[in-house]
Design a protein around this nucleic acid. Sequence first.
DNA 1: ATTCCACCGGAATAGCGGGATA
DNA 2: TATCCCGCTATTCCGGTGGAAT
Length: 340
Amino acid sequence: MIVDERVLAEEFVPSEVVHRHEEVSLLSEAVEPLVSGGRADPAFCFGPTGVGKTCIARYTMERLTEKRPAIRVAYVNCWQAYTRFRVLHRLLEAVDRAYDVHRSTAKDELFGRLRAADDAPIVAILDEVDQLEESEVLYDVHRLPHVSVVLVANREEELFARFDDRVRSRFRAGTRVTFDRYGVDELVAILAERVRQGLQPDAVADDQLRRIADAAAGDARVAIGILRSAATRAAARGDERLTDDLLDDAIPDARSAIRQKTLESLPAHQRTLYDVIAERGETEPGELYETYEERVDDPKTRRTVRNYLTKMAHYDLVEATGEKRGRTYRTVEARPTESN
DNA sequence: ATTCCACCGGAATAGCGGGATA
DNA sequence: TATCCCGCTATTCCGGTGGAAT
């Protein structure tokens, strides 16, 4: 059933893009100066989740290195690398200069090393850059003439709101590429291409692809997730083709699976907070803290709990309504469409 | 209107952990 | 081994503010 499971993996970058030709050429143009040894202005990819921002950014940079192999591409996901130190570290890793870097390495040592790595241009793809907590690192990187950046985020306004002034002014210039949600037909085409590359021919019927595309509501990540989950199960049973009831199982699964995963990876204290909110529904901060306090031994401070809650809101696990006094928390239900 | 209170979130600080260095 | 260093998390301190109470 499954011929090549990498094709169904989250981070797979196809060798051909099905739609998004316009976005690819905009982005290629933006980094074109690098081919002739110049420097590219920053480039931006904006759009909701699952519309191919990351995929297209990586794809386009791969094509760029084909034109000029000396160029090195560094991919940094700012969910994980949200401090200056970690971003610089990831960049150094990408150019093989991260040997014996450790926590006690001097503050500017990392930056110095990156500055010294100027024998060839570096393109840094900073994914989910709105998760970056220390945006000054963008200023650092901008100062290096041999480093060009591609910033990937959901919305421009929210991204710039997080920047400090220096960064904001430096990044005003640059190419913006915006991505819209996929239509059903486009999703079907994307899925069909994955099926062609990764599964046995005829493993999935056309109307099944259409059902997946419908359920995914414009989100290619969800669509491919459904396909992956259904195909994996079919393969486990030794089936040659996808059955409809397998698909019925996979569709609700793909959405909740992601949430379930983040929930499980939540540290104990945050998990307790989540559970309390889930049990009580709409919860006020006061009672929330009191319940948390008696449920856990060695409770954290109120302030720390507030930090946890903002973090969990960031992960879209929890939602706060109201400011200051009178605020309430509740868990975020798995909504059919994420419109961020 | 004024006061009071609960709660938010920024900034500075403390303490931990783990690799380096001598 | 003892000590230094530094990133990271949690804590302390506090100014600000929306809503309830007076």
